[in-house]
Every structure is written in structure tokens, then in C-alpha cells.
Computed example of a mutant assay.
Amino acid sequence: LCQRFGISRQTGYKWVNRYQAGGREALGDLSRRPHSSPNRTCDELQARVLEVRSQHPAWSAHKISRRLKDQGLQGVPSHSTVNAILQRHGCIGEKASEAATAWTRFERAEPNELWQIDFKGHFGMLDQRRCHPLTVIDDHSRFNLVLQACCSQDTETVYTHLRNAFACYGLPQQINADNGAPWGTPSKPGELTELAIRCIRLGIRMSHSRPYHPQTNGKDERFHRSLKAEVL
């Protein structure tokens, strides 16, 4: 019979023995789960992981693992294990897994080689005014250099906060922005704005993203996503 169906005798006897032991129900696929898991993360650590996740739903497995280590917890699992714990308890859906697809990343070699600047979309406050969050990110370190709640997006407001950043962190070699005001001129691409001229006089090169390509300032855009999820 084994020769007729092209299988080994070992495989044939396995199915015969399984049928004799449990009938047709025993012929289905069995669980591949091991009988014991000596390296399984203990329930206490899993509970701590889920506790941190519930307090900070926007945090990734990397950040949760690092926070537990910073709290002095012993035996903290790796970020891959933390990710598996979150998936096992339904904290990460299919859409979130798809969104976490690895991308080819790039960054400048040293801090202050390139800053990314932008305004996070404005929002209303209780006193009916609008808040315009200004952000600046260092391309190499992803360090948040500027995070200011502004009441407008004019040149003087932006330049004041940039000057404070220059005094604290030094001058960058280049600043990249989108094509909107006050650093760009949407109606006249390539024309220098007053803000750009001030930066150029300090020896800073100004550059702009391609129209409709926000990924050029991707690190700042990603920072905006965390800002919205955890603060706003």
C-alpha cells in the first residue's frame, strides 16, 4: 500500500497506528506546540509588558522593553519576545503589522548635518485660538530640537525659535522643509523666502521636499504621528 501511494513505510505505519489509537478524529493535524517551554516568559513579566502597553498604547515593543529595563526589572525579554506577547494578547492587529513593514532607511553621518522642519497640523484650543506646533528633528540622531506651540506660522515666529535652537545646539549645515509658507513659496517654486535668506546668511543651506512627497521629511512626519498619538 505504501509503495502504491509513493510514501515510506515509516509514514504508513504512523497513520495506521494513529488510526488504531483514535479513529478518524486522530487523523487530523496535531498541534506543534511543545510539551514544555522552559524559556517561556513568566506570567509576571508578561503582565508588566501588558500593563505598560495599556498605559502607552502607541509604544512599540522596542520602547516597552527599554522602559522595563530602565525600571530595573530583571530578565526583561527582547523586543521580539515583547512583540510576540503583544500579538498573542491581541494588542497588535493585522493592519498594525502590515504598517510595520521594514523600509530602507537613510540618515546623515553626523548630527547637525541636516535638520528637518515642519508644522504639525494646527488644532483648536479651549479659548477658541489655534495652536500651530512647530517641530525640528535632527536627521542623524532623530533628536527633537524644537517643539513649540505657536499661535501663528509667520516668519518672525519661526525664526525666533530657530535662533534659540541655534544658540543651544549650534548651526546645522542644511535645513530641509516642504514647499509651504513661511520657508517655501507654493506659487513660485524656487523663489527664496525671507526666512530662507536669513538662514543662508548664516551659512545654512536651505532645501525643499519634492511637491506631494512628504516622505522626504519622513523623520519629522513620523515624529508628528507620535506627537498626535501620545500628546494631542
Rank of each mutant, 00 (worst) to 15 (best):
H161C: 02
L162A: 05
L45Y: 01
L27W: 04
A229I: 06
P38Q: 05
F223P: 00
Q128Y: 09
R105L: 14
N217F: 02
S37R: 14
C131E: 03
D127L: 03
I197C: 05
H35R: 14
G218V: 00
A61N: 03
L147Q: 10
G75L: 07
L68K: 01
D220F: 01
V231A: 13
T155E: 06
L227N: 00
H132V: 05
M125C: 12
A109Y: 07
I117R: 03
C91M: 15
P211K: 10
G190Y: 03
S37F: 03
H62Y: 13
Y212R: 14
G22I: 05
F119C: 07
E25W: 02
A26H: 12
Y13E: 14
D138V: 08
E230G: 00
R4I: 14
D127H: 07
L145E: 00
G170Q: 03
N176I: 14
S8N: 11
Q174H: 11
L134P: 04
E221Q: 03
R9T: 13
F5M: 12
E191T: 15
L73S: 05
A84E: 11
S54N: 12
Q148R: 12
P189H: 10
V158N: 00
R32K: 13
P189V: 10
L126R: 15
H122G: 11
V82I: 07
H62R: 15
L86A: 04
Q173V: 10
V231G: 06
S207T: 15
Q153H: 07
R163D: 07
K63E: 10
G23K: 09
K228C: 09
Q71M: 13
R163M: 12
G121K: 02
A47F: 00
Q215V: 08
T155H: 06
R32V: 02
Q20C: 13
T135H: 10
